[in-house]
Design a protein around this nucleic acid. Structure first.
Lengths: 146, 146
DNA sequence: GAAGTTGTCTTGAATTATTCAAAACAACTG
DNA sequence: CAGTTGTTTTGAATAATTCAAGACAACTTC
């Protein structure tokens, strides 16, 4: 995805096009499920004057505009991804925190319904799977073999 | 639940029985889904010398022992509950953060299976429903009526 | 193409939840 | 009742995130 295409994406969302915003979108295209600090590290080479606070500001603006989705798995800092609009879920490694996308387990959002909502108006169902990623499985096997 | 019964619960889990531990268990019996600070406030009257760090220590010990379940909904600090062993889920109010228990939507834990695990060994499926609680609905209606 | 308005970025500091560490202390064992 | 082990107290440190004010840049209008 070119910077021009990313700029169009921003414009279509009614946002001003700025270098930090394009850089953050670009970084999240390459490395989804990244936290603010990782994104900061990714954009720093191309924008030497950038600050971590600017990244936080951009992430908040893009999330509010619906261009990003923010996920907050237990034990991790907030992560961001560009894949939005489809109600997909996540698979999180309990060892290293790695995140992988999982397509909706049943259907459309909310793809699940609580057995009893108790007066709540339910908007969305969030599903997180917890397990061990292939890399960490190898590492654990290695360790137990010693 | 009496303090003696709570003490037995601790002993059965192989833990030493201390006042802070009994007090924390008791507080969580009365007010489930509480964070460390709320629990600290609840136990302070009966244990004037207690510190917030002690509460954190107790919560960590009881969670490790399997007596408590720790949940970390996005936007809230860590919450604890005594209802464990059954794979129940949670309904969280996006307005005020109130949490309500929801029985498992399908069956036993993990009650859901990802469409593709991609090499991950999946242990648990966590489901969080997001919506608006009755109180906040009333408040919102009130507001829009002005 | 230039000036104005609006909103963004930079810089610096503050906040909140949580964790770490060392010494004082208390619970269970024999 | 004394010893050992593990817990609590006290005090400080850490990490992620947010707040605020001035400098600055993007889009709009002339």
């Amino acid at each position: 995805m070119t910077d021009a295409a990313l700029a169009d994406t921003l414009r279509e969302a009614g946002l001003k096009v700025t270098e930090p915003r394009v850089a953050v979108l670009s970084a999240l295209t390459d490395i989804p499920h990244s936290d603010a600090d990782t994104i900061f590290g990714a954009v720093l080479p191309s924008l030497p004057g950038t600050s971590l606070q600017a990244v936080y500001g951009v992430l908040a603006a893009l999330t509010t505009a619906g261009l990003l989705r923010k996920i907050e798995p237990a034990g991790s800092s907030a992560l961001y991804e560009r894949r939005i609009g489809d109600n997909h879920h996540h698979l999180v490694c309990t060892e290293c925190g790695a995140v992988r996308d999982v397509d909706c387990v049943v259907g459309q959002a909310p793809c699940l319904t609580p057995s009893e909502a108790g007066g709540f108006t339910v908007h969305t169902a969030e599903v997180n799977f917890w397990g061990v990623c292939p890399d960490c499985q190898s590492a654990l096997n290695q360790k137990s073999a010693d």
